[in-house]
Every structure is written in structure tokens, then in C-alpha cells.
Design a binder for these strands. Structure first.
Length: 246
RNA sequence: GGAUCCGAUUACGU
């Protein structure tokens, strides 16, 4: 079954979810092998990525009927997809369901929820979620912090993003290219190019390699301020670093 | 009792 799982994942990665579904159905119909929780997880992930969260939820019910216990990964996949669809309350319902079934959420599950809550501006609920994580002794990880930094930046609350950065460093989590790129984008969105370049200098100082996304944000920021010369300089830097413009 | 393989989360733009 692992072989089929690997193949199914390949199809999903290649955006050939339909073919993955066909193969999945064939496995069951021809009794080639019984799908396990990884198989279901892979197919659900494919369905979700293709925008079929509802069908993925139906598959969740199907696997239960078939006597395969949904893992936390399976629940997390559904929760993540609902959050991305801004159906965070439905996601919270699934969270309650999994806990009722003694399948306990992990940091990934909560990261998706925090992402969803923040993207709806439900800051208080996001805060509550973090408190709940602490209560469950689930440590925030790099992804949690990055999600928060990005959410604040997108709302123009760069000061709050900066305090998240301080907290993460305090907690011994090392900011990475995503953290700094989010911050840079935050300043660029506000047209604060001096600050954006300051963050850029900081990340270089920490030997964190900027990538094409980092530079795209900077170019966007300079162009917004009609500073084409600076934008061109950044563009030269891209070529210099052998990065490929997207 | 232990190890390994297969699934879930974060940044720009399109």
C-alpha cells in the first residue's frame, strides 16, 4: 500500500488529482489493497488542493464507515482547507470532533487555525488558540510565528509583527527567510522602504539568504514609491545572485 | 521494546 501511496502523492503533486481519484477507487473496487490512513490523507489533500473540501469531508466520513480511524493528519488536512476557504467555524467544529474522538491536534493543526483566524482578523480568537496550545503543552514553532508575523504585516500592523519577532527570538526560535520576507513585505506595503531595507540588511547580517520572493517584495515597494532607480538596483542584485525572476 | 518508508501548516507576484 505504501507503493500506491507514493504513486498517489506523485499524481497529486503533478496536479493530476482526477487520476489519483480514479486509481484510489480502483484500489477499492478491484480489492487491490485496502487504503490506510496515509492513502486517505493523500487523496484528501489532493481533493482539498483542487478546491473540493466538501468531497474531502465526505471521504472522511467514508473512511470512518470503512473502519479506518482518521489520523490527526487527516483531520489537519480538512481543517487547513476549511481555514483557507475562510470557513474557520467549520474548521473549529472539526477540531472539537477530533478531540472528542481522542485524536489530539498538534502544532500543524493549530497553525492552520491561527492562519484562518488571523486572515479573518479574529485576533482575539487567535490569541485564545495560542493560550489553548500552551495549555496543551504544544510548543509554537517557526511556522506559527511566521504565520503571525505575516498576518500582522498584511494588516499593516508591522509593529505587532516586530514584537512577534522579538518573542520568537526570546523563545529561541530562529527567524528564517520567510519571517524576514514577510516583514520586508509589510514595510513595503506601507511604503516604508528605509525600514524594509533595514530588515533586509539585518537578514543579510544573519547570513540568511534572501530569495526571489524577498526581492519581489522590495521591487514592489520601490515601484509603489515610484522609485524606479532603486527597483532597478534590486533587480540587478537578483541577477547578481543568479536568482530567476518569476 | 526499537528503527525505517508513504499523507497535513507559513512569505511576494501570476
Amino acid at each position: 500500500v505504501s507503493t500506491y501511496n507514493t504513486l498517489l502523492k506523485g499524481l497529486v503533486l503533478a496536479d493530476r488529482v482526477f487520476e489519483a481519484e480514479v486509481l484510489f477507487k480502483k484500489l477499492i473496487k478491484d480489492r487491490i489493497c485496502e487504503p490506510n490512513e496515509v492513502t486517505y490523507g493523500t487523496i484528501m489533500n489532493g481533493l482539498c488542493k483542487a478546491g473540493n473540501t466538501k468531497i474531502a469531508i465526505r471521504l472522511l466520513r467514508f473512511m470512518e464507515e470503512r473502519g479506518c480511524k482518521p489520523s490527526k493528519e487527516v483531520y489537519s488536512t480538512i481543517i487547513d482547507s476549511l481555514c483557507k476557504d475562510k470557513m474557520v467555524d467549520d474548521a473549529l467544529t472539526i477540531l472539537t470532533e477530533m478531540i472528542d474522538k481522542r485524536v489530539f491536534p498538534n502544532v500543524v493543526t493549530y497553525n492552520s487555525l491561527i492562519y484562518g483566524l488571523c486572515s479573518l482578523g479574529r485576533w482575539e480568537d487567535a490569541k485564545e488558540t495560542i493560550i489553548e496550545m500552551d495549555r496543551r503543552k504544544i510548543n509554537l514553532d517557526l511556522c506559527t510565528f511566521n504565520t503571525l508575523v505575516d498576518a500582522f504585516c498584511k494588516e499593516g500592523m508591522v509593529e505587532d509583527a516586530e514584537s512577534v519577532l522579538r518573542v520568537m527570538i526570546e523563545r529561541g526560535e530562529h527567524p528564517d527567510v520567510v519571517t524576514y520576507s514577510s516583514l520586508i513585505d509589510g514595510y513595503c506595503l506601507r511604503g516604508q522602504m528605509k525600514e524594509a531595507m533595514g530588515v533586509f540588511a539585518t537578514m543579510i547580517g544573519k547570513k540568511i539568504e534572501p530569495n526571489i520572493i524577498t526581492f519581489n517584495s522590495l521591487i514592489n515597494g520601490h515601484c509603489k514609491r515610484s522609485n524606479i532607480n532603486e527597483a532597478m538596483k534590486v533587480f540587478d542584485e537578483i541577477t547578481h545572485r543568479n536568482l530567476v525572476p518569476t
